[in-house]
């Protein structure tokens, strides 16, 4: 087990290194650089001065090495556009994304798993059909379109909920974080819950047909106990992997939903940094998200074994 974790962490660090190199090279291959964006009327000498200030005249590999060196010392550089340390900027935005992602993830699990279980028990009944219909819609609808429609209905027509931002009063529903969260969390849940539902249903169907379920029934266990103790526990590993997958997507901040609702999260930060060619922020966000994703994957793989003793690490 310890050996497995050590190996996984080692592989993770390697993956992160490769990823950072790929992204660094990609970003630095961009023509123009930040100097092209800062001021369109800037003279050649002004640009050169700016490039010198940011150290952009050195070869790419040297820059990558010095970037990596400072990252190892916990320094992600200074944002070009915000003139603040990148670690501080990310520290400001990341909790907001975590709040949104956590709420959407929690709701998706709380709705998706019981719904999938019930759909698996009563296949073809109305609940299954209804849930499958909603699932198909959730998987196909563009989240930002749903977001616009939600704003239209709940903010423009009904004046019930604020259309954008995180705290400011205005629109409807007054100030405070909670009313601002309802629409984005609702949209994210509608889009992500179906993934949980599909997997939960499929693995529950399989588990309910397995021999151990028949044995449990034969022993005279109550139906409730059969479903929730025997079948669900066995069906949970595929569900866990889809939860891990959703977490990795959500942790990157659903850039689009955050943009539509003007939610100050990490996804929106990335969109803004990209349009302003804020290289240090782009690099910082990518590396922080990449590291989180790799951590989540390792945690999920360890959880497999904790939840299901049949899983062996080698």
């Amino acid at each position: 087990m310890t050996r497995y974790v050590v190996r996984r962490v080692g592989l993770g660090v390697m993956t992160l290194l490769i990823m950072s190199l790929i992204v660094f090279l990609l970003i630095n291959a961009a023509p123009g650089g930040p100097a092209a964006i800062v001021n369109m009327n800037a003279t050649a000498s002004q640009r050169a001065a700016l490039e010198k200030l940011y150290g952009l005249q050195q070869p790419v590999i040297e820059r990558y090495a010095s970037w990596l060196w400072s990252v190892l010392h916990g320094n992600l550089g200074v944002s070009y556009s915000l003139q603040q340390p990148v670690t501080q900027v990310i520290g400001d935005y990341f909790p907001n994304t975590a709040l949104l992602a956590g709420a959407a993830l929690g709701l998706s699990i709380l709705i998706g798993v019981p719904l999938g279980t019930q759909a698996a028990i009563g296949r073809g009944r109305w609940l299954d059909r209804l849930a499958s219909l909603i699932t198909m819609m959730g998987l196909s609808v563009p989240d930002y379109w749903l977001a616009i429609l939600a704003i239209l209905v709940f903010s423009v027509w009904l004046h019930l909920l604020p259309a954008s931002g995180m705290n400011a009063a205005g629109g409807g529903g007054g100030g405070g974080v909670l009313p601002h969260m309802i629409l984005p969390v609702g949209v994210l849940t509608f889009v992500f819950m179906p993934n949980v539902f599909v997997i939960a249903k499929a693995s529950m169907i399989e588990a309910l047909q397995a021999d151990y379920t028949r044995t449990a029934r034969g022993k005279g266990a109550s139906e409730r106990r059969v479903v929730y103790r025997h079948a669900l526990r066995n069906a949970f590993n595929p569900v866990l992997s889809v939860i891990g997958l959703i977490t990795t997507v959500l942790i990157g901040g659903d850039a689009i939903v955050e943009t539509v609702f003007a939610w100050p999260g990490i996804g929106r930060l990335m969109v803004e940094a990209t349009s302003q060619r804020d290289y240090p922020v782009m690099m910082g966000v990518t590396i922080v998200i990449g590291a989180s994703v790799i951590c989540i994957n390792i945690i999920v793989d360890i959880l497999y074994g904790l939840l299901d003793p049949r899983v062996r690490y080698d």
Partner: peptide, 10 residues
Amino acid sequence: AIPALILIMV
């Protein structure tokens, strides 16, 4: 490990 949209933006 890189979210799709972020990679595309870069």
